[in-house]
Design a protein around this nucleic acid. Structure first.
Length: 956
RNA sequence: GCUCGAGUGGCGGAAUUGGUAGACGCGCUGGAUUCAAAAUCCAGUUCUUUCGGGAGUGUGGGUUCGAUUCCCACCUCGAGUACCA
């Protein structure tokens, strides 16, 4: 009776679907376990073998935990809003909803073939109105909240209004816009409703503001910082420019410290946490205020090196700094204007690529040193970034590389002073090094190994003491204070796209108004065209039925807009990360129409025990979702403020590209071994036209392939009568023709083989190349496993008592498989299964007492065959909930050990000795052994090390 | 530049409270079976060797009876990030 994977896999997949085997209940006496995959964007290309890697790992854990007696939540869904479906709509006119539906169907078919134990009853789709209703609802919650620094949490905006009414805003400590004017209670109460709304907008956690955004002209939309890679868009690689626009923003900066702190409480990889820490970019320093001479303006700078304040030689403002226009003197006006214009023209990318070139101009103005009162020339320069700190720096050439380079470059012009040194370097034993005068060639940027000089009251102090002292002095004269600065910027939340969540927002006199919760969802309107309008408005500007009727609370035609009861709706949509920032909570109670999720469900499942997904989301999804979770926690909606206890990043599966080599004239194709020193150009060969094992090109298939029509008449230069292709490991991608489709693998070898092989390939977190040839290994393993339970006549097992050896192998395997699964070391447990089956095969084991637990052990990895074997053993129903076998130490206890005997650390021979023997007894036996004498060759052993049960080492 | 991670056979990889380096699989070699092939099974497979051995986990040093594992310095590759004041 042969193992026929196609037949049994289809059968059990149908069984699981019909019997709802993996349906999770929100009520159970069992402990809960929540295993989550990052849900996919359903792209038109379908899945390749790299995609399911993480899903297979999480499925193994989910199935293992079910065997262990947990109530397991293992859901799946689709992040179904996004750019590709919209771009397809622009090209073809097909509605993105149709494209998305088709792609999801394809994804589902592919996923089903691999035999995942997902609870599809809880499927979510971010583009489904029943889902995005709650995304809109969360947006409204954010709008109706402010961040109270004193309480260190988000609170309802009404608590802020209460304070304003009683005390004004002077005493309010909130995370808000920087330029909020101070007002009293009387003033507040005297403001018009509109004025009050404007002020509140400066406090809300999501707010409308004119901000400088990353505008991508090619995509016609704004991009978030994490959607830009090397100055071009992550999608498509289009150039990105800075542009001022009125946009919704999320006040994620309010949560900077808590996002940082929370990292200490979660078990995520160190590198991922480090990425988030860098992205948040906390730096502890001092804010110093400089007065501008002959002006009432002041310049605030942020510095981490306040100790160097007596080394300040000049100040540099970012060209975009607000004060530039105000302080620039008449003589310098033309030069400054020209410089600003020149910088604005340079794209972010050029500016980044070209860090070596020093440029800047003098404003003509001077600031006043807070202590010495000496004049300090104020320059502008593009090495100072408007977006970081205050967009202004105090420049200390002797202590900072960039300041040094700038000062050196402009030395002697416009009052740029000579570089002055304020550091006395210390020798290794802490004495002042008088022999060496530093700061001749470069800045002294270290924070240790010096004491200050020429620094008034700071003379003789090191970095720490000086910083402490200068903060005290600055505070005493009111010119500065300690400050913590974060790199993390508020996140722009508007996108000029069609295929995203519409905002539940309409505008009255330009002021945004929220639509009441009970009228949600606000559904995406139909449009004729998915492109921006002729007037440059976002695609929703094409909608004709997109106005809000406040009398009837419904969306109505635009021509009804009268700005009295009918108002225009927001034309932007939400970004891709909106829907993915809370979906893990929705799975807990996916069908709920009354609430985001019920309190019972949220309290029962609480958080994700294991989250598996790619590391590319480190500073996007994984940061935004933590932010929303903390906000929802503050509002009492969710019970925990970190939603994923443990996170694992699966590595990428790389493609194994094949190449043919053409000559310059494209008339000849040269086999790989014959290239020699000929000039040839590699062309990707589709994997369907080569033999994956022998690397031989199927020339007929190649010529017949539509991609290679240009080579119909080409001459093939063969080696040994064959054309051998070159191979190279690259990212798996359609454009490299190295994609392997899991459907093909399932059809040829079966899903269980695919699952085992993906795990067997190597450690989950590591990138590793795919090699279809290796499939035969695991395929052979499953056949051998099958043969243990069967004969030519069908299933045949014995109830006889197994031998000691059989028990030993089984329990070794239980031990290893359990440990490995707990450590997510899936590759090594597959090895152990192979060892086990090889051993049992040699022992001719067909004993029920061994084969029953073995089926359960294998079941998380290869569930279909496990089900079939379980049925073959005579059981009704699924193996999925059968208790996991228990490891018993007694089966592994040994009475003797084969000791390795080393001489000077090199293993030379082995000797079987009883474990009962004492150290002196072992020594006596070993020294009397002939092989020892031969090794020593007459020398006396200097030392004999015996570690009982482990090793013997003789030094001599 | 900085941060994090990784360097082990022809290939994927295994082994770390320091204790037999190369488990398991691919590939390769030889054999059995077969009319033949596929499939299957058996044996071998780090390198080198004068068959006694010798060398060997990126390189150089150190600690140790003993180092892939710990320490120092360096090299290479990958990922992230960057004029961050």
């Amino acid at each position: 009776m042969n193992y026929n994977p196609n037949e049994i896999e289809a059968k059990w997949q149908q069984y699981w679907a019909e019997n709802q085997t993996f349906k999770a209940s929100n009520n159970s006496d069992k402990p809960k376990y929540y295993v989550l995959d990052m849900f996919p964007y359903p792209s038109g290309a379908g899945l390749h073998v790299g995609h399911p890697l993480g899903y297979i790992a999480s499925d193994i854990v989910a199935r293992y935990k079910r065997h262990q007696g947990f109530n397991v939540l293992h859901p799946q869904g689709y992040d179904s809003f996004g750019l590709p479906a919209e771009q397809y709509a622009i090209q073809t006119g097909q509605h993105p909803a149709i494209t998305t539906e088709t792609n999801i169907k394809r994804y589902r078919e592919q996923l089903d073939k691999i035999g995942f134990s997902f609870d599809w009853n809880r499927e979510v789709r971010t583009s489904n109105p029943e889902y995005y209703k709650w995304t809109q609802w969360i947006f409204i919650q954010l709008f109706n909240s402010w961040y109270n620094i004193t309480a260190d949490k988000a609170e309802d905006i009404t608590t802020l209004i209460t304070v304003f009414e009683k005390e004004g805003n002077a005493s309010v400590k909130a995370v808000c816009d920087e330029d909020v004017a101070v007002f009293t209670a009387e003033e507040w109460n005297g403001f018009t409703g509109e004025e009050q709304q404007k002020i509140l907008l400066q406090y809300r956690l999501t707010y409308l503001a004119e901000t400088e955004v990353n505008w991508c002209p090619a995509l016609g939309t704004v991009l978030a910082n994490d959607e830009i890679v090397n100055g071009v868009s992550e999608r498509g690689g289009h150039p990105v420019v800075r542009k001022k626009m009125t946009q919704w923003s999320m006040r994620i900066s309010a949560y900077a410290e808590r996002l940082l702190e929370g990292l200490n409480r979660i078990d995520w990889t160190e590198s991922l946490k480090e990425s988030q820490r860098n992205w948040i970019g906390k730096s502890v320093g001092v804010s110093v205020t400089f007065n501008v001479k002959q002006s009432d303006a002041t310049i605030e700078v942020f510095t981490t090196r306040a100790d160097t304040i007596f080394g300040v030689a000049f100040m540099t403002l970012a060209p975009e700094h607000d004060l530039v226009a105000q302080i620039t003197t008449e003589e310098q006006q033309a030069e400054v204007a020209a410089y600003i214009e020149a910088t604005a023209k340079r794209s972010e990318r050029e500016r980044m690529a070209d860090v070596k070139t020093i440029s800047g101009v003098f404003t003509g103005a001077y600031a006043e040193h807070p202590f010495t009162k000496e004049p300090i020339p104020i320059w502008i320069g593009d090495y100072v970034l408007a977006g970081y700190g205050t967009g202004a720096v105090m420049a200390v050439p002797c202590g900072d590389e960039r300041d040094y380079a700038f000062a050196n470059f402009f030395k002697g012009t416009n009052g740029m002073p000579e570089i002055k040194n304020i550091f006395s370097p210390l020798t290794a034993n802490g004495e002042i090094d008088t022999s060496d005068e530093v700061i001749k060639e470069e800045a002294f940027a270290a924070k240790q190994g010096f004491v200050l000089k020429c620094s008034d009251f700071l003379d003789g102090l090191g970095y720490k003491e000086a910083t402490q002292k200068v903060i005290e002095e600055l505070e005493a004269i009111g010119a500065g204070k300690a400050k913590v600065n974060y790199r993390l910027r508020d996140a722009v939340f508007s996108r000029q796209r069609y295929w995203g969540e519409p905002f539940p927002v309409y505008y009255v006199n330009g002021m945004p108004q929220m639509i009441a919760d009970e009228h949600l969802p606000i559904r995406l309107p139909e449009v004729e065209k998915y492109l921006p309008t002729e007037t440059g408005e976002p695609p929703l500007g094409n909608a004709t039925v997109w106005a809000w009727d406040t009398a009837n609370n419904e969306v109505v035609a635009n021509d009804k807009i009268d700005h009295e009861t009918v108002f225009p709706l927001e034309l932007n949509t939400m970004p891709g990360w909106a829907g993915s920032s809370w979906y893990f909570n929705r799975y807990m109670d996916a069908g709920n129409t009354e609430e985001f999720a019920s309190q019972e469900a949220l309290n029962y499942w609480k958080d994700v025990d294991l989250y598996i997904g790619g590391s590319e989301h480190a500073t996007g999804h994984l940061l935004y979702s933590r932010f929303w979770q903390k906000f929802l926690f503050d509002k009492g909606v969710v019970p925990v403020d970190e939603y994923a206890k443990k996170l694992i990043n699966q590595g990428m599966i790389l493609g194994n590209s094949a190449f043919v080599y053409r000559t310059e004239d494209a008339k000849t194709l040269v086999s790989k071994g014959l290239i020699g020193d000929k000039t040839v150009y590699p062309i990707h060969a589709d994997l369907t036209v080569i033999n994956d094992v022998t690397n031989e090109l199927d020339i007929e298939a190649f010529k017949a392939h539509p991609l290679y029509q240009d080579y119909q008449d080409a001459e093939f230069i063969l080696e040994d009568g064959k054309y051998i292709v070159g191979r190279e490991v690259e990212k798996m991608s359609k454009s490299k023709y190295n994609v392997v489709n899991p459907d093909d693998i399932c059809a040829e070898y079966g899903a269980d083989t695919l699952r085992l092989y993906e795990m067997f390939l190597g450690p989950l977190e590591q990138a590793k190349p795919w090699n279809t040839a290796g499939m035969t290994g695991v395929s052979g393993f499953l056949k051998k496993l099958w043969r243990l339970y069967t004969t030519d006549n069908g299933f045949e097992v014995t109830d006889a008592e197994p031998t000691k050896e059989m028990y030993k192998v089984l329990h070794q395997t239980i031990k290893k498989a359990t440990e490995d699964i707990e450590n997510f070391s899936f590759n090594t447990s597959v090895s152990q299964f192979m060892i086990c089956v090889n051993e049992l095969g040699k022992l001719k084991c067909n004993h029920r007492a061994i084969l029953e637990p073995l089926a359960v052990l294998v079941s998380p990895y290869a569930p279909h065959i496990a089900e079939e074997l379980w049925a073959g053993l005579g059981y009704e129903g699924s193996i999925a909930m059968v208790a996991y076998p228990k490891f018993e130490e007694k089966y592994l206890v040994e009475s003797s050990k084969e000791y390795p005997v080393s001489f000077n650390g090199k293993m030379r021979f082995k000797i079987e000795l009883s474990l009962e023997l004492s150290v002196p007894e072992i020594q006596e036996i070993i020294l009397a052994d002939e092989r020892t004498k031969a090794q020593l060759n007459g020398r006396e052993p200097k030392k004999v090390i015996i570690v009982p049960g482990k090793i013997i080492n003789i030094v001599g």
